[in-house]
């Protein structure tokens, strides 16, 4: 038991600087909120169960004194059982509300209008590299540069197998499919350099299929677009 408590301490301590809990965009912030929210809600369950568990196991353990005790024959208890049917349902409803709200807004969608307000970037995955194509036709491999504060709309396709586009600090992942375009939006990224990677197993060098993301000021972004690609 001690061990488990100790491990939980660890998560709280480590929680202060865990990657996805330090979001750097509005999208990732909403996700981090959901993670935290569901975590604490679930802690209610964990604490309840652990308390009852420890109490019952300790109190009703076998001792020499209770050697000949014959437990009372209890079949069940309607009231108690209804309690632990109803309470979890309520708890889950509390969880479901923000889940639905944020999922509805954030889910990756079928191809969208490229005129929608924001910066549109084509992401092409293939074994084992990423190609980013900007609105003016500029292409670069394994390096993504985006302006801060804008909605960034990614149009993702794959040339071979399924990959998954993921920059943990900027937002959740979205799969990159062959033969089908998916769009995913990241809102209001903050300035900085971030890691990106492929999160869907895609073959031999899957682990090495990474990219760098740089979020820059809007002016710098415009400048970047007209530079020759490196």
């Amino acid at each position: 038991m001690k061990k488990i408590v100790w491990l939980f301490m660890l998560i709280f301590l480590a929680g202060c600087n865990i990657t996805v809990l330090q979001p750097k965009s509005e999208t990732a912030s909403e996700q981090a909120f959901l993670i935290n929210f569901s975590f604490w809600l679930m802690m209610i369950v964990v604490v309840t169960v652990f308390t009852l568990f420890i109490r019952f196991v300790y109190k009703y353990r076998f001792t020499e004194k209770r050697k000949d005790d014959l437990p009372e024959d209890v079949k069940g208890n309607r009231k108690l059982e209804i309690t632990w049917i109803v309470l979890p349902i309520l708890l889950l409803i509390v969880l479901a509300v923000p889940t639905i709200a944020i999922t509805y807004e954030q889910s990756a969608k079928a191809p969208q209008d490229r005129k929608k307000n924001g910066v549109h970037i084509d992401v092409i995955g293939k074994q084992f590299s990423w190609t980013f194509q900007y609105e003016n036709g500029k292409k670069e491999m394994n390096r993504l540069v985006i302006p801060e504060g804008e909605p960034i709309i990614f149009h993702l396709t794959s040339e071979d197998v399924i990959h998954s586009f993921w920059a943990p600090k900027l937002g959740g992942k979205v799969d990159v499919m062959p033969g089908k375009e998916i769009t995913y939006e990241i809102k209001k990224p903050e300035k900085g350099s971030y890691q990106g990677k492929c999160a869907e197993y895609c073959g031999l060098a899957h682990a090495n299929m990474t990219f760098k993301t740089k979020v820059v000021a809007k002016e710098d972004y415009q400048e970047y677009l007209i530079q020759e690609s490196q």
């Binding site: 990732a28 981090a32 993670i35 889940t99 999922t103 954030q106 889910s107 959740g172 992942k173």
Partner: peptide
Amino acid sequence: SVSAADFQ
């Protein structure tokens, strides 16, 4: 099961 969190 919190689908938006599952993206992470």
